[in-house]
Nucleic acid binder design. Structure first.
Lengths: 244, 244
DNA sequence: ATACATAACATGTTTAAACAAGTTACGGAG
DNA sequence: CTCCGTAACTTGTTTAAACATGTTATGTAT
């Protein structure tokens, strides 16, 4: 549900682009026309267009107009610049998702774990290993570390369903942003066992490490996502800014 | 050189965050104070702050303020959400860059190449293979395909130096945006040969495919960058938006 | 017919103001 | 001292207007 005017306009323009109502390489209606169409101010349409730019849907050219450069992408396991739970992502791509909890335990951050995750040494954590299936194929192993004082009452059952749903709708936590780092790492025995991989084929995995913050500025989650390399795909749009 | 007011403010705040002038987890001065500091309107400071948010430097909380959540990152070969040439990226990280041209030829897009790159079949292209060294270590093999009608006069010598410098400063082309897709792929013999890798160690590479557009909306470049897996690192910041 | 100034139109930057909504600190009532 | 409402903050959304700057089409002078 769009919450405000610029989001409504953004969603509408995005839909029209995705459904070819605006043709590829064509110019969108000018700002003045959009102002009349949506009965709003220029700032508001510009805000909607600005988001289309960062999402890679259009490019703007001073004096010329706004050009549709959207190309339908192959299905991606991860969205661009957004935080999505595994279930949300699967639903967006029209795939069936399933999750199996391999491990659920409460631990205390050792010095080495603190170094790796960014939590304080001695911090009380939930450590969860989960296997994610997409269309009945095991694709991702997640190692989640949640700060217990921020995520009380987490259970194995919640981990089977959706942790983010629990955090947002039951604990009313506000998840704000997530720093993600992508690397390629050697496969481990756990990976090999659960993802049906053999090291003679692929001996590496795509690894996404993410540090997630809530609205109190507290990093409450560290997650390492290990992806089957042959199904991993990450897309982003970059904008050229004048060299300073 | 900052070109306008909001960029000046953005650069200044970013510097103050990076140099710990604002402490980690502290709130930045309120918008009203920043208005006085920079003698500008509220929209202008908000625009600067907005960019700090998308860059992952700060998080904003309605009613509370703007919190510094910047953590210095390890050196990355790629910048976040920006288009950088290899030389620019190296300079930013204080590293020495060198480039060796392995292959420079003019080709015509076959059906299969057209499929892979997105160029029209039969398109006249420059095909360039380059090996990029960082601090004397060969880290990346680039396969560049440039549309000849958009990039006339490209030579092996220019490819040795900086193609982007030539495109922007000599041809006065305006590079706008780039769609990038990251995947993990099997190592090839070329990779093995030039990057000093042996398949028994790592048999995969991090591959970044990018489709780059100019201000005429023409995709003039397709590039496949193949990165040594043990030195590949890509960082981004994601923002949680309300589920619609 | 060509060349060039110009008008019309496009997006880019900046200011000002008002209201909405969330958070915090203060002060009075109990 | 505690509770609670409110005032005084904070950021979020939206409008309006002006000027800057880049592009394109038009129309006039050659």
């Amino acid at each position: 549900m769009p919450r405000n005017k610029y989001d409504t306009i953004y969603q509408d323009l995005k839909r029209k682009i995705e459904t070819d109502e605006f043709a590829y390489q064509e110019l969108l209606p000018s700002e003045n026309l959009l102002i009349q169409t949506y009965d709003c101010s220029r700032n508001t349409v510009r805000r909607a267009i600005g988001r289309l730019v960062t999402d890679g849907y259009v490019q703007t050219m001073q004096g010329k107009g706004v050009r549709n450069i959207y190309r339908p992408a192959a299905q991606t396991a991860f969205a661009i610049g957004e935080i999505e739970s595994f279930r949300e992502s699967a639903r967006r791509n029209g795939q069936t998702a399933a999750t199996k909890v391999l491990l659920f335990m409460e631990i205390q951050a050792s010095a080495s774990l603190a170094e790796k995750t960014g939590f304080a040494p001695g911090a009380q954590l939930y450590y969860i290993q989960r296997l994610h299936y997409l269309d009945d194929m095991p694709l991702i192993i997640n190692h989640n570390y949640f700060l217990r004082e921020c995520t009380p009452g987490l259970t194995r059952e919640i981990a089977e369903a959706s942790i983010y749903d629990y955090l947002e709708n039951t604990l009313h936590m506000t998840i704000v942003n997530s720093r993600r780092i992508m690397t390629v790492e050697k496969i481990t025995e756990i990976d090999e066992k659960y993802l049906d991989l053999n090291a003679e084929d692929y001996n590496c995995m795509a690894v996404v490490s993410s540090y997630t913050y809530n609205s109190d500025g507290i990093m409450f989650e560290f997650t390492q996502s290990r992806h089957r390399p042959d199904y991993f795909r990450f897309q982003e749009n970059a904008v050229r800014r004048p060299v300073s």
